[in-house]
Computed example of a mutant assay.
Amino acid sequence: MIIHQLRFRFRNETTEEQKAEVLALMRRTAAVDSVSFGTVGRHLGDPEAGYTHAYCVGIADLAALEEYMHDPVHLDGDPRIIPHFERLVIGPDLSDDPDPELGAKIMALHQRKVEMYPEWARQMETIPEVRIA
């Protein structure tokens, strides 16, 4: 199992209505077939860290992760979600898979997505603060 998590804060100009739409889109993504379980909600960590919300999905294996990354629902939601992020931290992900190369394989899948969808990569660059943990 691969557990993928995001922590984020909305931009100041994002309205409550837009926040609700973004969270609904994220819940829709967390419910695609390649996801074993998912949740979206308030971030309960240290408020001083500056994150208000979190997203977490459990994905069975590397093949399911690749399917998830390219799922039409995921690809459709991202352009409507990304513009609302002020801060985003990706990970740290975790897994019970003993493969010592799993992290590198996941990063290779991410790089492939960047190459396949340059517009997605450009959208990610518009987030003022992004960190991979």
Rank of each mutant, 00 (worst) to 15 (best):
M1L: 14
M1A: 15
I2E: 09
I2V: 13
Q5G: 05
L6I: 05
R7A: 05
R7E: 05
F10S: 04
N12R: 11
E13N: 15
E13M: 09
E13H: 15
T14P: 10
E16H: 05
E17F: 08
Q18I: 13
E21W: 06
A24F: 04
A24M: 10
R27T: 05
T29M: 08
S34V: 06
S36Q: 14
T39E: 04
E48W: 12
G50V: 07
G50L: 12
T52N: 08
T52C: 12
C56Q: 03
V57E: 01
G58F: 06
I59R: 00
D61Q: 10
D61L: 04
D61H: 05
A64D: 02
L65F: 11
E66V: 00
E66I: 01
E67I: 01
M69Q: 11
D71P: 06
P72C: 03
P72Q: 05
L75H: 01
D76M: 08
G77L: 11
D78C: 05
D78K: 01
P79Y: 11
P83Y: 02
H84P: 06
F85C: 07
E86G: 04
E86D: 12
E86Q: 10
R87N: 11
L88Q: 04
V89L: 10
I90W: 02
D93G: 07
L94R: 14
S95W: 01
D96M: 07
D96Y: 06
D96N: 11
P98I: 07
P98L: 06
E101C: 07
L102M: 10
G103T: 03
G103S: 13
K105Y: 05
I106S: 02
I106W: 09
A108W: 04
L109A: 15
H110D: 04
Q111W: 14
Q111K: 09
K113Y: 05
V114P: 00
V114A: 14
E115K: 12
Y117R: 08
Y117I: 07
E119K: 15
W120V: 05
A121I: 04
Q123V: 00
M124Y: 02
M124W: 01
E125Q: 15
T126A: 08
P128K: 12
P128D: 09
V130R: 07
V130I: 13
